[in-house]
């Protein structure tokens, strides 16, 4: 089913907060264990799902899986999100020696394949997403963001090759998760927010198109931060949904974008979802819903991934309001 048809399939607003980390504290496990053990991860996702009752479920966001599968060193603190500590891709010959990892046996990709399987088993009728980082972000992790920025101007062939290779990794990983039980894919492309529209169109857009064209299931594109300048380019990627962060004026974006492109967002993950009271979250949610009331192509969510300390009641309040309107 196309994403837009699913969104329109029920009279009430669909709501899918980007919430994985807040569930971890409900199980008493550490972040690290939850990212390494699929059974634990699914247990924490399920506890959170039962508490907030959203319309869809997503795994815990982990931006290091792909780089780690390519052999890059990462650090995994006990109670924080992991990160890549090394950027080993220095030259075209380094690139030649890399091969697209097999998701069945590379790094922690199998953890997420198993998560997709388990979620399908316990929530067969719910929309189940899976994540993969986008080609520019992965290239940024492999090369380093600063060196990659220089390459865009000074060695565009190499930059393009690194980004296109990364797109193959994204594709393989998404396909494997979709094959294991996920029903839609979310491409996380945070680092692309630093690009001008021109650079986005030259380097990111073609790579993202290759991904969306080779995957039949719906794909959502998520870029964090202020992406007003990239909306036009994001629209052309072939993604069926755009997940937009809190700096974006969502109603204004909806006016500019086609009515069959699903927009997902965009309560501030920290300033609203963490820092405000339940009552205030309700207020903010109501005003976003009313501003978006003329647009059926909308899924209510947080602008970006919710931090671990987000109060569960606040996420619950967000879902409740969507249901009550």
């Amino acid at each position: 089913m196309k994403l837009i048809d699913w969104v329109k399939s029920s009279p009430s607003r669909k709501v899918i907060p980007l919430a994985g980390y807040p569930g971890i504290k409900l199980t008493g496990s550490s972040v690290r264990e939850t990212l390494e053990n699929p059974e634990l991860q699914v247990r924490s996702l399920k506890v959170l799902f039962d508490r907030i009752q959203p319309d869809g479920i997503l795994p815990i966001m982990d931006l290091t899986v792909e780089a780690q599968a390519l052999g890059v060193k990462i650090q995994m603190p006990d109670q924080e999100a992991p990160s890549v500590v090394d950027h080993p891709l220095k030259s075209p010959s380094d690139l030649q020696s890399l091969t697209v990892p097999d998701p069945i046996k590379s790094g922690r990709m199998p953890v997420y394949l198993r998560v997709a399987e388990l979620l399908k088993a316990i929530l067969p009728d719910v929309a189940r997403g899976c994540y993969a980082i986008g080609p520019f972000t992965l290239a940024g992790e492999m090369v380093g963001v600063e060196p990659l920025s220089f390459l865009l101007y000074e060695n565009p062939e190499f930059a393009r090759a690194a980004i296109e290779f990364s797109a193959q990794v994204t594709t393989a990983y998404l396909k494997a998760q979709l094959g294991s039980g996920a029903t839609f894919g979310v491409i996380l492309e945070p680092t692309a927010v630093i690009l001008s529209p021109k650079m986005f169109n030259d380097f990111c857009l073609p790579a993202l198109k290759i991904i969306t064209q080779s995957i039949p299931q719906p794909i959502v594109l998520h870029i964090c931060g202020d992406t007003e300048h990239l909306l036009e380019g994001m629209k052309n990627t072939g993604a069926q949904g755009l997940s937009l962060d809190s700096p974006v004026d969502l109603p204004a974006a909806a006016k500019k974008l086609p009515s069959d492109l699903v927009l997902i967002g965009n309560l501030h993950p920290v300033e609203v979802m963490v820092e405000l009271s339940q009552g205030e979250v309700r207020e903010k949610t109501r005003s976003l819903l009313s501003a978006m009331s003329g647009f059926p192509n909308f899924i209510l969510s947080s602008g970006c991934d919710l931090p671990p300390e987000t109060p569960i009641e606040n996420i619950h309040a967000l879902v409740q309001i969507a249901r009550s309107i």
């Binding site: 600063e146 920025s149 220089f150 865009l152 101007y153 630093i194 690009l195 001008s196 650079m199 300048h229």
Partner: peptide, 11 residues
């Protein structure tokens, strides 16, 4: 003024 973005500033 969003005429330059991060890569241009870095250059």
């Amino acid at each position: 003024h969003k005429e330059y973005f991060v890569p241009e500033v870095l250059l």
